[in-house]
Structures are given as structure tokens and as C-alpha cells.
Write a protein that binds this DNA or RNA. Structure first.
Lengths: 346, 346
DNA sequence: CTCGCTGGTGGGACCGTTATCATTGCCGGG
DNA sequence: CCCGGCAATGATAACGGTCCCACCAGCGAG
């Protein structure tokens, strides 16, 4: 086993009998070099198994080819969809995605961000971040496009592609109210200073707001457990709800995963869905379509959100003139109720 | 808005009145510089909002701090767990994970790998790769530790941390045979030359092998659809099974997701589980615990697999003496049947 | 007092690539 | 026949760090 170092552009140049620059050109812009030369260089590249070093290239050209993405977690299918849509677009333009996740831990945010910035990404995409003073300062100092996604912040840092989580909650409440329910409940996670992502809390607040507007009590609004939410959360939250507001007719869960957990727990308890308890969720997870009865939910096109974000980045980085900060984009991708069978007119 | 470039070590040095080297030392090994000097430098760093450029540093020190991970997909919760376990360990040693995924597309593998190698990772972790001639060549030429995970290949490239997918299939078959079933079925994906990951196919082959050993027919073994598998796959595969082998008593699905889809479809069809059809899956996904009845499955500790991989990497990179290739590690993390209620003695 | 050592710091060269400008050879037009 | 212009290629200087060694005080031992 030859433990020799990786071949560099120098060695390729030497073997092909050309200068380093010519090799560089063959790799990045082949058309400008004579076919005969190009072939010779390509052969040398193949012979040596040369793979260009992007770090060195980036240092020189000031273009690292990185786009940074900061997520609360990888485990959530919707965030995975975002990453997916984003990668699809970025691959076409030769950007690599650099993913960091915080696991909803506030302390990790700054650490992760510094780490990300040390790689000199050309743009950065953020989800559900808290944006402390120091975070904002670091971001601005990076002097690259900043994109906040999956939310619609009132005071955005720069670009926004998302939807209103508050509106999600309101839509759910209105949907249930329209069907004549009056004893409404909602379940989400406990939100305190140590929690990074406030999007779930926004949804639950939107729900509460609509309840208050209609003069209804908010005793059925339960904050239980902590993010990330999953099936189990629904089980526990339902039990708490049954203690606190046993007469609840209809329930909104801030995540489909919780909602599915609730449906399953209802089955175990022998409660009929939706006759004994109506349930709706958020996120349009695949499992919601499969359970019996299938889950009513609110859909957001996360994959499209990811690809739109990707396209905006490519645009932003492609345009020679760095757009002024006041030309920040703000895109609402909207949301839609998907009616299935877990809710029925009362 | 000052659109000035990011501050470099030079400017920090100037502001603090020291040389660049001293700044470098304060960042990477603070203890060797005098407290007074250190404070001065740290103040300058804070004032300027200096964030070191790891690409530049890596170029010089030949240590990029990257560990590469190649996955079929991000969307699978088990792979996400692996990534999770891996990150947890690597964070502690200041490595960043560079994730690439192929979406089970064979053509993407080489492209992604080249891309990864262009970032000069210090180690590379692979899952379910096909290892074509060219791929293997690229990997070996990189001259870094190579770790294959989530499988137990007969002819590994170097290190292996995984479990036998073939054994998963055999274990499932034996489990069902032991309970007295004789008309067994299995569902997986179609496997042809264009598919990257063979782990599901290995599971199904192990199942078939055990069937043949017992002199039972393999007509109930269905290859349906293509990876990635999900709930919907189970629905379609069950329907195909019902056409091809309607008298099947017990069924193994190569993924819990398919298995859950089967259970749900059974509910819709009014079939009782496990009385009319026994079902077991693989992967121990959370949803399997929640459905009614809960899903019998085969568990592998994917999170632990990820963290073990991380620890091995840290070991390998930490040891000054590069270990000889013959000292390759081979770890079997094992597997275990988790009995729940979807299977019952016949 | 001198010498050697040690801890703290600085001065260059270098890591592998690309931007930029210079150089070369060739072609066609005046 | 000469010269301007263009296409192809080369030389050199960055890019932002760290490695390696030299330097310099200060201090204890001989």
C-alpha cells in the first residue's frame, strides 16, 4: 500500500507537461483549452487519481461552494424534506450543503453557528432559531445572504421563505369552530427559555387567540413534555388533557406525530375517533394518511419550501451585483387544511 | 452596513499588537501564551468579531476536521439515528460531519464521493454502498480510514461496524417457523442493477434461505416497488401478496414502515392481526410501538452503531501511528427480536 | 560571571489552488 | 512584409492560516 500523499495539481501538470494553470482550467472551464492539451491533462488526472482540493481552491477564489443549513433536528421528516428540496437545487449549481443541528438545545446554537461560519459558507439558512443578540451579530458580520425559513418572523434578519405558524393555529381553531365544536383542546410542548424552536408555541398561541376571540375558555390547551415531539408525546398529552378538560370534543395537535399518538391511544382506550374525540394535526406526515381513520391535518409544502430556498440562493449568489439589504425577499408558501376522517361536523 | 471583508488573523494580530502566530496560538492552544497577552488577543478577537477560517487552517495543518458520511437517504429514521450518534461523539473532538446522500441512485454514488473527497475528510463512513471498481479505487487512494456500517460485508474495504442483514432475514424466518407457521411470506423492494442499497435484499434472501432449508416454498416472497420503502409500500405489497399467495399465514417485511402499512391495510380490509395474518418487521421504528396491536420487530441499536463508529474514528485519528490496514476492525452490533402482539403462536 | 536552558514570541516558508496579467504563436488585412 | 488582434498557455502573487525554527530575556548552576 503506497501511503504517499494525495496527488496535487502540480504533479498532474508535470505529468501532462503543462502548467498548473492549464490543469486548473481543464477542471473548471475545459472549453478554453485546446482539445489535444485537454486530453493529455485528463489522462494525467485519471492516471494519478487526482481529486482537486476544494478548500485550497476556495481559499484562492473566495468561493467555498458551501451553503449552511441550521436545523433543530434531522429526525423530523419535514425538516428532512426541506434539506432534500434544498440539496436537489444546489447540486445543480455545484454547492454543497453543510448541515448542523441543535437538537432544540439553546446552548448549541451559537456553538454550531460559529462552527458553520468557520467554514465560510456563501449563504446560510436558518430554521426556528432564537436569534439572540450575539447570534444576530455573528450572522450580520458574515456578510452573506441569510435566509430564515419555515416561519414568518415579524422582524426578519434578511430573507424569509416560510409560512405563519400563528396562522396554522388560528386556521385549526377556525376549522373546528366552523364545524360547531365548542369545547376545544390543543396539545403542544412546554416552551421556556431553554427551548430553541418557538414555531410549535406559535401554533398553539394562534389557536388560543382564536379561542379567546370566540369567547371560549382555553383550559383545554395543554403544554406537555418538550420538543422534539413524537407519537409518545400525544399519548402523554392526551392523558393530561383527559384529567384537565375531560369534556373536550375536538383537539388540535401542533404536530401530526402527536396527533397520531392520540389516535392510537384513543383506540386503546376504546374511544371512537372522531365520534368521541375529533382530532387534527399539522405537517401532513405520511403516517397520517395510513392510519384508520386517516388524520385530518394542515399541509405545508416543505419540499417546495426547500427548493424555493435553493433557487433564491442560486439567484442571489449568481447575480454579480450584491442586492441591497432592503431588497430582502419575503415569501409565504401558505398552508392548506387536508380534510380526512378524524374530524366530522359535530 | 459595512460590506468590508471578514477580519483575518492579520488584523487581529495588528490590533492586539502581536504576531499572527500568537493569535493562532490563543485560538488553538491558549495555555502556551502569557495570560496578559492572551487577554489582549481575546479582546481584539471579540472586537473584530473574528472567526478563524478552517479551510485556510486545514490547508496548512493538513487537518480539515471533516468526517464524511454517505447515506442512501436522510429520510429514514434509523439512518438519522446513526448520524445523530456519530455527531454526538464527533462534536466532542471538534470534527464536523459532512453528510451526502444518494437517494438510492447508483449514478449519484461516484459523483457524491468525488465531491466528498474534494473536501479532504479525515475519515469516511459508508452505508450500503455498491463499491464499484472505481469507487473502491477512489476510496483507497484517499488514504484515510474507511468505515462501512450497517452491514457485515464478506469482503470489506477496511473497518466494519454493523450487523448481518442476511441474519436478520434468517432470524425472522426462524422466529415464525418456531411458532408453527408453514405458509410464510416476505415483502421487500425490487432489486436490480440500478439500485444502490442491497441491505433490504440481503434480508429477504436470508428469509428465503431459511424457507428452503425447511423445504418450504418461496412463492410468498414478494419483491414489490423500489426503495426507499415506506407505509405505502406495505399496502401495495400486501395486495400483490394476496394475489400471489392468498393463503399466507405470516409475513415478514424488510422494514417496519412497510409492516405498519400492512397492518393498516389489514384493518381496512377487516382482517384481524395476528389471527388472520401475522406480521413482523425490521428496524424498531417508534410507530411500531404505537399501533394497535403493536408490531413485533427486529431491533438494531442504530444510535449506538453511530456512536461506536464515532469513537473508532476518534481513536484512529488520534493515534499517532497510523494502524496497518490488516488491523481493521470488525464489529457486529447484533440484533434482537422484540416480541409484541402482531405475531402469536399459530 | 558565564553558560545553557526554558518559556514566550516572532519571522518566514509553505499548504494547494486560482486571479491576473504577461507572453507566445498564428492568422489575416493593409 | 509587417503589425494588430486573438487564442492558448504560462509566471507570479495572493488567499488565511500553521509549522518550524530562530530569537530573546531571565534564571539557576557551576
Amino acid at each position: 500500500m503506497k501511503s504517499t500523499r494525495r496527488p496535487t495539481i502540480r504533479e498532474v501538470a508535470q505529468l501532462a507537461g503543462v502548467s498548473r494553470m492549464t490543469v486548473s482550467r481543464v477542471v473548471s472551464d475545459p472549453d478554453v483549452v485546446l482539445p489535444a492539451t485537454r486530453d493529455r491533462v485528463n489522462r494525467a488526472i485519471a492516471d494519478l487519481g487526482y481529486v482537486p482540493d476544494k478548500a485550497a481552491g476556495g481559499l484562492s477564489s473566495r468561493r467555498t461552494g458551501f451553503v449552511a443549513l441550521m436545523l433543530p433536528t434531522l429526525t423530523n421528516a419535514n425538516f428532512a424534506s426541506v434539506a432534500h428540496g434544498l440539496t436537489e437545487v444546489l447540486r445543480g449549481s455545484d454547492y454543497d450543503l453543510l448541515i448542523a443541528y441543535t437538537d432544540y438545545d439553546l446552548g448549541e446554537e451559537e456553538r454550531q453557528l460559529r462552527n458553520l461560519l468557520a467554514r465560510r459558507p456563501e449563504a446560510i439558512v436558518l430554521t426556528g432559531a432564537s436569534h439572540s443578540r450575539e447570534i444576530a451579530r455573528l450572522l450580520l458580520a458574515a456578510n452573506i445572504p441569510i435566509l430564515e425559513i419555515a416561519d414568518l418572523p415579524h422582524r426578519p434578519i434578511e430573507h424569509v421563505i416560510g409560512f405563519s405558524n400563528h396562522e396554522v393555529g388560528r386556521t385549526a381553531a377556525r376549522y373546528l369552530l366552523d364545524r360547531g365544536f365548542t369545547r376545544l383542546g390543543a396539545i403542544g410542548a412546554v416552551y421556556d427559555g431553554s427551548v430553541l424552536d418557538h414555531r410549535g408555541e406559535e401554533r398553539i398561541r394562534g389557536f388560543e387567540e382564536e379561542l379567546r376571540r370566540s369567547g371560549l375558555p382555553t383550559t383545554g390547551v395543554i403544554r406537555h413534555g418538550i420538543a422534539p415531539l413524537s407519537y409518545d408525546h400525544g399519548v402523554g398529552a392526551l392523558q393530561e388533557l383527559q384529567r384537565r378538560a375531560p369534556d373536550t370534543q375536538a383537539l388540535f395537535a401542533v404536530s401530526d406525530l402527536s396527533a397520531v399518538g392520540v389516535v392510537m391511544e384513543c383506540q386503546r382506550q376504546g374511544l371512537r375517533v372522531p365520534d368521541d374525540l375529533s382530532i387534527m394535526g399539522f405537517g401532513n406526515f405520511e403516517i397520517g394518511r395510513e392510519i384508520n381513520p386517516p388524520l385530518t391535518t394542515i399541509n405545508v409544502d416543505f419540499h417546495g419550501l426547500g427548493s424555493q430556498t435553493g433557487r433564491l440562493i442560486v439567484d442571489l449568489l449568481g447575480s454579480a451585483t450584491p442586492p441591497a439589504r432592503e431588497a430582502a425577499h419575503r415569501v409565504d408558501v401558505g398552508l392548506a387544511v387536508i380534510e380526512r376522517n378524524t374530524v366530522r361536523p359535530a
